[in-house]
């Protein structure tokens, strides 16, 4: 059975190595600040007792006041999983890209950019995925239709 990583323990470890990174902890997920996302991601992937080598799913939700990008990570070695979140403002949403760490994020980040308009800085090829070139707006935003 894939176990969820205990958030409190993880947050403790994270704040030891990357101070000021964690914004909120709940039972089921950890929210980190966008500016420290890459550092946290590197830590999650490279520290041997976490070893999150597999990015299951990347998506985003529009909450009108802010946008939230959700990363679901799994470690195949330890068979545990984690839901990581990042919040960014809605007017100029910018989140660093994790394609350098998990290539599986490539098309998924393009999809989020296309449908919700979050731009991932550092993505090698940030173009629309489904809508055609020159399409205006981002259809999955709550105020689109």
């Amino acid at each position: 059975m894939t176990k969820a990583v205990v958030s409190e323990e993880l947050a403790g470890k994270l704040s030891k190595s990357i101070p000021d990174a964690v914004e909120e902890i709940t039972e089921s997920w950890v929210v980190v600040k966008p500016q420290s996302l890459l550092q946290v991601a590197i830590h999650l992937k490279q520290s041997p007792d976490l070893a999150f080598d597999y990015l299951n799913c990347l998506t985003a939700v529009d909450y009108m006041e802010y946008m939230e990008v959700i990363y679901i990570l799994t470690s195949m070695k330890h068979n545990h999983s984690l839901v990581l979140k990042v919040r960014c403002n809605r007017e100029r949403p910018e989140v660093p890209s994790v394609t350098g760490l998990w290539k599986g994020a490539d098309l998924q980040e393009r999809e989020v950019y296309d449908l919700l308009g979050i731009s991932f800085t550092g993505h090698p090829n940030l173009k629309r995925l489904f809508m055609w070139e020159g399409f205006e707006g981002h259809p999955l935003r709550r105020d689109y239709l």
Binding site: L38, S97, G100, S119, T121, G122, H123, E133
Partner: peptide, 16 residues
């Protein structure tokens, strides 16, 4: 790859 990530403007290309 991570070291190369630029801090400047994001690449926003809608038109190829």
């Amino acid at each position: 790859v991570i070291l190369e990530i630029p801090k400047a403007q994001p690449v926003m290309r809608d038109v190829e």
